[in-house]
Amino acid sequence: MMATTHAFMGMALALPVLATAPELAPPAFVAGLVGGVAPDLDLYAGHRKTLHYPVYAPIAAVLALVLAVLVPSASTIVLAVALAAAALHAATDAVGGGLELRPWRAGSERAVYSHYHGRWIRPRRWIRYDGAPEDLALAGFAAVPVIIAGDGPLTVLTAALLAVSVVYVLFRKHLATAAERLAAFAPAPLHPYLPERYRGA
């Protein structure tokens, strides 16, 4: 899925906070955004493995949620939303496409790595690839309530990210070719740091 889709889903997790403790909603929305995109910081270092925990992250999120219910405060609520967003990110990567430069070809059987099982979880391809039309539909489904419920900077940021998502979807398949060509021009010392899928995919 697109990074923006993960961000919107993470932010949507903060909507109950807005309804029950509106004074804590701003940091909760930020926590959802950060938690939603944070797992993808491993893009160039073991993508969907290093920072993705489809089994352990949900357990941590449940424990954090229990703590937030028992000891409600800005810090416990922010922690719960952030961990829930990160857990949702890892779990939903399993229903998307495989880990490859052109996932619409359905050639990879690696969706997300489970550290608990010690193996890769295969892609379900309910959302065929990041930037697919159904990915944009899910992004919109998660973003619209945030846009409606939010105000000021939150609404502007979410709407802007949704617009970026639309552009990404329009050019998704062309971007794969562009990335491959740019990788070919990378200096030799950088080659070990490039994702394998960028090298002659």
Rank of each mutant, 00 (worst) to 15 (best):
P16K: 06
P16E: 05
V17P: 09
V17F: 10
V17Q: 08
V17S: 04
T20Q: 14
T20V: 14
T20W: 12
A21V: 11
A21H: 11
P22K: 13
P22A: 14
P22T: 12
P22G: 15
E23Y: 02
E23C: 00
L24S: 09
A25K: 11
A25Q: 11
A25F: 10
A25D: 07
P26E: 05
P26R: 08
P27F: 03
P27S: 06
A28F: 01
A28H: 08
A28N: 06
A28G: 05
V30W: 07
V30L: 15
V30Y: 00
A31E: 00
A31L: 03
A31C: 09
V34N: 01
V34K: 07
G35P: 09
G35C: 08
G35Y: 01
G36D: 03
V37W: 06
V37N: 01
A38N: 02
P39V: 02
P39M: 02
P39T: 04
D40M: 03
D40A: 07
D42S: 04
L43I: 09
L43G: 04
Y44T: 08
A45Y: 10
A45E: 02
A45N: 13
G46L: 09
G46Q: 06
H47D: 00
H47M: 00
R48G: 00
K49D: 00
T50Q: 04
T50L: 12
L51W: 07
L51R: 02
L51V: 04
L51S: 05
H52S: 09
H52G: 13
Y53T: 00
P54D: 06
P54H: 11
V55F: 13
A57G: 10
A57K: 12
A57Q: 11
P58W: 05
P58S: 12
P58F: 08
P58V: 09
I59M: 15
A60N: 09
A60Q: 08
A60D: 01
A60K: 10
A61R: 12
A61L: 11
V62N: 06
V62S: 08
A64K: 13
A64M: 14
A64T: 13
L65M: 14
L65G: 15
L65T: 15
L65I: 10
L65V: 10
V66G: 11
L67N: 10
L67S: 11
A68S: 15
A68P: 12
A68N: 10
V69P: 01
V69E: 09
V69Q: 14
V69I: 15
L70G: 14
L70Y: 00
L70S: 13
L70F: 02
L70P: 05
V71A: 15
